[in-house]
Amino acid sequence: MTDIYLDGTLLDYEDVDRDSTIGDLVQAVEKELKPMRSFVFELWVDGEKIEGWRDREIMDNSIYKYREIRLVTTTVDTIAMEGLNIVQEYINLIKRKISGVVKELRSGNIDVEKDISTIFEGLNEIVKTMNSLIEGGTRYGIKIFKENPAPYYAPILEYMEKLRNAFSCGDTVLMADLLEYELLAHLESMERRIFHSREF
């Protein structure tokens, strides 16, 4: 019989017909956890952490096949906090990168392509993570952001487009201006408005 642990505690369960799947197990556990705004966060099978375990091909597997299954839970608040940390880290990284790139451009160094890519990737991650946080928050009824960040996305995308254009026509002054006076200012304003408390 398979040993099933929930956050390290052995669970007592019944699987008489040996037809319960991992999906059934997770569903049953999360049903219990929902009032506490918790959910299953990690799945370990026979000592191995499973990545992408919410995929159908994992969830449809029968429990009886395994020696041991461990479920690790977390609260929505913890996840939200982690998500927020990630967003803040990205924003800080991008602000540092922007300052660096601006200094390079202003002092005549054109070799900033790599840093510009990092800024673009970072901005994409910010938008993606904030979207996930909003979705999660809506599902669990949590107000993660002080103000809805969605209206800030469009200007970010717009700046990225302007930067791409300035870069492609070699307008390094405009690039520096867009980064320093528009994007950076926008990110700082967004930070002030959407985060409840900040430790920047």
Binding site: S107, C169, G170, D171, V173, L174, D177, E180, Y181
Partner: peptide, 18 residues
């Protein structure tokens, strides 16, 4: 030729670096 030669915000700031 489609490029700015000084900042449209504060040219003196960039000049200070140079």
């Amino acid at each position: 030729r489609g490029r700015y030669f000084h900042s449209i915000y504060d040219p003196w700031k960039e000049i200070a670096i140079q």
